[in-house]
């Protein structure tokens, strides 16, 4: 209760100072997923990052939230690096559908993956 009051006071002060709004997205451990990869670019670092992204994707899907920009694409990218091009394409497509701004890049990545599969 008290913490709620404090929270709303802080929020009020914050809106006054910065004019900020509540979060648009639930980011989960997105930043940590990047940090982990930055610190440890090996397969184990990537596997750890993959789990963090997977949690965001599963949670958003279960609750019908909008996944933050870039998360599906990043998740697809890690799938691709794990040698799963078909699953990767699924998530690149999801990114393109959810965020039309990404369609151009996602389409070009997908067509490059498909070309590579033909070779």
């Amino acid at each position: 209760m008290i913490s709620q009051v404090v929270r709303s006071l802080v929020l009020g002060a914050c809106v006054g100072l910065m004019g900020c709004a509540p979060s648009l997205y639930d980011w989960g451990q997105y930043e940590d997923s990047l940090y982990t990869r930055q610190q440890d670019a090996s397969e184990s670092g990537q596997a750890e990052a993959f789990k963090m992204l997977e949690a965001i994707v599963l949670e958003a899907d279960a609750k019908n939230y909008r996944v933050p920009p870039g998360v599906y694409a990043d998740y697809g990218y890690l799938l691709f690096k794990q040698g799963k091009p078909d699953q990767a394409i699924t998530y690149f497509r999801k990114e393109a559908v959810l965020y039309k701004e990404s369609k151009y890049l996602m389409d070009s990545i997908i067509s490059r993956i498909e070309q590579r599969k033909l070779q």
Partner: peptide
């Protein structure tokens, strides 16, 4: 969660 807390 609110993005405001750390900013405040």
């Amino acid at each position: 969660k609110s993005a405001c807390l750390p900013i405040a």
